[in-house]
């Protein structure tokens, strides 16, 4: 017993090093392997408070860009409104009877990273704004990612620029589906893999969300085809997609909650059983 104590006291520095290094390694491995339930994340009061204070100063320097983005979006929405009215002039539909499928929440981005190999954003809406895991996050131009961790008033978003991100997407022209990943190289491009090589892919085609999951509705823009090549096996395409969003400049995002999600999931689970 005495010897054990002596050993511990003699090697206390090394043992403490091993302990602390082991804890950090465990946290690192956990963050690489699990999709969610991370122990250390920036959705907490301390980091949120610091980022919030800094953001309130920082956003003044960005007002011009954000205004331009808003003007663009207004222009697009106005176009939709005017076209909608002329289309349905004869058969008027009272919109109060159409049940909405998605609830939209606006949030400010407090922290955004795009140069690491696993990128996350921190936003200023959390559980008290009824934001939960697995809600989709978009901007006016296209998708950003999926809600990963939430705290009372903050949430982290698993960016599409993250090696763990998998999003269902399709070619707009032909509806061939694939899965959207990121290889970690450039923040301007993501990769659409597992596209059947029956699909007539052309450079410049639009890629949008597929609507097969309950996270994103169908038809939200992602990017355009930059280049493509066949897989090693030769029966699927890997497509380089140039993103619509400039991932390095994101100020305001929209969070989408699918109100039918529970119903769809119960239905799918009952089919599986």
């Amino acid at each position: 017993m005495q010897q054990i104590f002596n050993f511990v006291i003699k090697n206390k520095t090394f043992l403490l090093f091993l302990l602390l290094f082991g804890i950090s390694l465990a946290l690192t491995i956990q963050s690489h392997s699990y999709h969610r339930s991370k122990f250390i994340n920036s959705a907490n009061g301390l980091t949120g408070g610091v980022y919030g204070t800094f953001n309130s100063i920082d956003k003044y320097f960005d007002l011009n860009d954000q205004n331009e983005i808003l003007v663009e979006e207004n222009k697009r929405l106005r176009q939709i409104i005017y076209n909608y009215k002329t289309d349905t002039d004869s058969s008027y539909i009272d919109s109060t009877f159409i049940s909405s499928k998605y609830r939209v929440t606006v949030a400010n981005v407090y922290k955004n990273s795009y140069s690491l190999s696993n990128n996350y954003l921190t936003i200023n809406k959390g559980e008290k704004d009824s934001i939960r895991e697995d809600f989709g996050v978009i901007t006016s131009k296209g998708i950003i990612g999926i809600i990963d961790n939430t705290s009372k008033s903050y949430a982290t978003v698993l960016s599409i620029l993250n090696k763990k991100s998998r999003i269902n997407a399709k070619l707009k022209a032909t509806r061939h589906i694939g899965s959207l990943k990121w290889n970690g190289n450039s923040p301007l491009y993501v990769q659409l893999v597992d596209v059947s090589n029956f699909a007539p892919v052309k450079v410049g085609d639009t890629i949008e969300t597929g609507g097969e999951s309950t996270i994103f509705p169908k038809g939200i823009g992602i990017g355009i085809v930059e280049s493509y090549d066949t897989d090693i096996i030769g029966d699927t395409y890997t497509i380089q997609v140039k993103l619509f969003n400039d991932m390095s400049n994101i100020g305001t995002v929209y969070i989408l909650e699918n109100l039918d999600k529970k119903e769809i999931e119960t239905l799918e689970n009952s089919v599986n059983e």
């Binding site: 950090s24 963050s31 907490n44």
Partner: peptide
């Protein structure tokens, strides 16, 4: 914690 990177900086 601030940069959502697991435990890499700690290690």
């Amino acid at each position: 914690m601030f940069s959502d990177s697991g435990g890499v900086h700690a290690a």
